[in-house]
Design a protein around this nucleic acid. Structure first.
Lengths: 341, 341
DNA sequence: TCCCAGTAGTAATTCGCATTAGCAGCTTGA
DNA sequence: TCAAGCTGCTAATGCGAATTACTACTGGGA
């Protein structure tokens, strides 16, 4: 019915060049020279028509035959261009874009995925994942059901951020080594003389949360206090920490660190003189604070970049290692100092 | 490669239910009741098998039939996710994304377009424009040669931002009415008592520049001073304006307004007491300034949104009006006041 | 003169699904 | 009794591109 006005097909090209559709296809796919049993003269004629018309193969038709289209999908669990959290997601996307450009691929944003229960879902009636050759997945938390299904269907994809196995099968990813970065920060605190550490934050749910807690526990000991930030009042949380004799606090979220620091200031305590404070990664939500926190940087652009590179390798069957962890750079900051004597 | 091994097809379902593929298709598509001449018994049997197997139609195959791929291209003349200028382009893209989501389309970013002469080009060897059903074009300045070719090829596209005709043929766009917004600001200044106005900025090149100058001239008179910001020294430009007796300056670019204001302050002049200053649109480059400029807002998200809507309409042959101008909202600000007596 | 090999192209088929045309078998109606 | 009209299903076709199988032609050697 709704006839696409100008969609050109190989038949059109064939007609214009006075050859068969097969010939057009051969010209396009044996571009090199090997095995192409097409006279140079003919090939040039066909290519000329293609150039003049700007013909490009229908990606759907090609995917029907399991061909690659140089199209990489990008699936985000939040809108790509939001006002909030833009600052956080952007660097990943910048890396993705950069890498896609280098490998000559176009990026397909799956904006068609409808939001359900406040989240986008990959799998829905009419999911168009297969339009892309493969897909990069971006999101703090990715429902494991979706991951399982992707793995089960053998769909080529790479997550940005480490992921747990899905149904016992490894999930391809390029992640940041939060475990190690967190552990290193604890060690740094220890070498400054701290002995009582505490972790404040969710610590569960997303892998990124769990990894930070894991790193903390590894270095601080399994019995070090772990405070989920549920308690409504920062002052109360601070009080509990001080009661426990904690001298160095590791906050998963920068916002929490800021809240605690403020509560401390309200009590006349100063950071880091009376209490050291470390944040575990770049803020997801922009926070206003004059404090230059000690912590680490997440190598976001690199993660995006390498995710695309890995995906391309996977698509070309050029790799068997599908999981990469990148180091985080520790930042000096000014919120970690020796404990009060 | 990416074909899931055990992927079910209607043929499989048909075999399992002991019917033909056609029947399966009919059962699935005439679900309602109209025209479906399938015995309830048969239909139930088919549905049963579908339920048991979890079969889902391949969306690619479906889309093959109704000619539209639901892929909208987005061509930007700069990278989409840069660190600089992100603030300016983002709102457009947010609108585009939002609208694409609503119309169930995916967005294809043409990251594969190579950069030549410091700019991306649509048309290059092997351009993949036609992979998408149509395309949204984003950029301050779009080479008219490219526009001409798009129009000539009858390729469905919509520009964000007004564009001049290409080779005498109208270019589809959703733009902002800079002419009117600028003229209104001049009128506002006039009603405050100003009589000598000046326009500072390129004023030519991109349509967006030209439109502002046009609006300015329309309201201020063709002989009002127009200063291209070429002169290297802001102080010098300021001097020239004051010499000419100008009391209200209309700066195309916020950065220029800031520079002039600074130069004025250096001479002990204050804005708006000694000199009124108006900026014509949101800053393209973030500028640090404590001044809250009088000017207007560009309805960027709306422009992006409507560009997609228009494109979709064009693709469905549902519209003949392919040019839209949106109003800009004037901002009060504090840099426009009555002229010094 | 005939056969084999090589060259340059085309017809036919495939992917998974929707749609159209059509084919049996069973009522009706006159 | 037979054409006309249903009912319930299937064969055939098409979407656009890739691939396989095949054909038509040209030379060269014996």
């Amino acid at each position: 019915m709704s006839q696409a006005p100008g969609r050109l097909t190989q038949r059109d090209i064939a007609r214009l060049a006075g050859v068969s559709q097969t010939t057009v296809s051969l010209v396009l796919n044996n571009r090199g020279e090997a095995g192409a049993r097409i006279a140079p003269e003919t090939r040039d004629r066909v290519l000329q028509v293609i150039r003049e018309t700007g013909y490009a193969a229908d990606p759907l038709a090609r995917r029907m035959l399991n061909q690659l289209n140089q199209i990489l999908g990008v699936f985000t669990y939040e809108p790509v261009f939001p006002s909030t959290s833009a600052d956080f997601y952007h660097p990943f996307l910048r890396g993705i874009e950069e890498s896609a450009e280098r490998s000559g691929c176009d990026l397909l944003l799956f904006t068609s995925a409808p939001v359900r229960d406040g989240q986008r879902r990959i799998f829905h009636e009419d999911n168009r994942l297969r339009v892309a050759d493969g897909c990069v997945l971006l999101g703090r938390e990715i429902p494991s059901a979706e991951l399982s299904r992707l793995v089960a269907e053998d769909y080529p994809f790479v997550c940005v951020g480490r992921r747990d196995d899905a149904d016992g099968r490894p999930v391809p990813y390029v992640g940041a080594d939060y475990v190690n970065a967190t552990a290193q920060l604890v060690e740094r605190a220890r070498s400054l003389g701290h002995r009582r550490f505490a972790f404040v934050g969710p610590g569960t749910g997303a892998e990124s949360s769990a990894d930070r807690l894991t790193g903390f526990r590894r270095a601080a000991g399994a019995d070090a206090p772990f405070l989920s930030a549920d308690a409504p009042d920062p002052a109360e949380r601070l009080a509990r920490l001080l009661e426990a004799g904690v001298t160095a606090v590791f906050a998963e979220v920068e916002a929490e660190a800021v809240a605690l620091a403020r509560a401390a200031a309200a009590q006349g305590l100063s950071v880091p003189r009376d209490l050291s404070m470390v944040t575990l990664g770049d803020p997801t939500i922009p926070v206003h604070s004059s404090l230059d926190f000690t912590g680490f940087h997440i190598p976001r652009p690199q993660m995006g970049q390498q995710a695309v590179e890995l995906l391309v390798d996977v698509l070309h069957g050029q790799t068997s290692v599908t999981q990469r962890l990148l180091d985080c750079e520790l930042t000096q900051g000014e919120t970690l100092g020796p404990p009060a004597a």
